[in-house]
Amino acid sequence: MSLTLASTVKLNNGLDLPLLALGVYESPTSVEKSRYALQLDYIDLYLVHSPLAGASGRHEAWLALQDAVKEGKVKSIGVSNFSPAHIEQLLKSEGVYIQPAVNQIEMHPWNQQKEIVAYCKKEGIVVQAHTPLTQGKKLGDPMICGIAKKHGKTAAQVVLRWLLQQDVVAIPKSENPGRIKENADIHDFTLDQKDLDLIATLDQGQNGSVTIWNPWTIE
């Protein structure tokens, strides 16, 4: 698989999204505040951060984002930590005519989110992995470290490369210039089928999660 730092994935609205995003930005709570803080005429991608607001809250937020797209303030809109049921419910709601372009979920070898990934790929929704490096909590795994040694890479680089080879957008969070550079240096090697088969055995489902964001427990 030929991947570079410039590699992108096509969203369902025809726009491109980088496969690897570096650094971190914490957004204010509205499109207008975000545009003001960033000093931008428009925002490329804006997400509903979680499904916690309930069906009516999610619906209201989505209608507001659709208006922002119509007004040219946002190019693409998506969701975060949504299960397939949340997305289906949203799409059936009155006035909804834009499908989420992205679903951002916790994803890494220890929580591979297979059901959500399969659903999103079927529906043309790009999966974006937050917390891909598990906040460092699982990077000492002997299997990942063994694969890293084989390729002359770090455990973090192996995990990020694995995500890219799943056609999943990775957003490793770091404010450290050295770590950001390391995270970007993943395009000169490829995980082979043996590597992929070994990583597949690490999946623990939601038991492997390192955050509070479990899409399956929120109504």
Rank of each mutant, 00 (worst) to 15 (best):
P84E: 07
P84D: 03
A85F: 05
I87M: 02
E88K: 09
Q89I: 05
Q89L: 12
L90F: 10
K92S: 13
S93Y: 01
G95A: 02
G95H: 04
V96A: 00
Y97I: 15
I98D: 02
Q99I: 09
P100G: 04
P100S: 08
P100K: 03
A101E: 09
A101V: 06
V102L: 02
E106Y: 07
M107D: 08
H108E: 12
H108S: 13
W110H: 13
N111Y: 11
Y119D: 03
K121F: 12
K121M: 09
K121D: 14
K122N: 15
K122G: 12
G124P: 03
I125P: 00
V126F: 00
V126N: 00
Q128H: 11
H130C: 06
T131F: 14
T131G: 07
L133F: 06
L133C: 08
Q135E: 10
Q135P: 00
Q135M: 12
G140K: 12
G140I: 06
G140A: 11
G140Q: 09
D141G: 11
D141A: 08
P142E: 07
M143Q: 08
M143F: 05
I144G: 02
G146V: 13
A148P: 04
K150M: 10
H151P: 07
H151E: 06
K153Q: 11
T154G: 01
A155I: 03
A156D: 06
Q157T: 02
W162Y: 15
L163V: 09
L164E: 01
L164P: 00
Q166S: 06
D167Y: 10
V168N: 01
V169I: 10
A170M: 00
A170C: 07
K173I: 07
E175Q: 10
I180Q: 06
E182K: 05
D185N: 14
I186V: 15
I186D: 02
D188K: 11
D188I: 02
F189G: 09
D192T: 06
L196H: 02
D197L: 11
D197W: 02
I199F: 07
I199H: 00
A200V: 08
A200P: 13
A200C: 13
T201L: 14
T201Q: 13
L202K: 11
D203A: 09
D203P: 05
D203F: 04
D203R: 05
Q204R: 15
G205F: 05
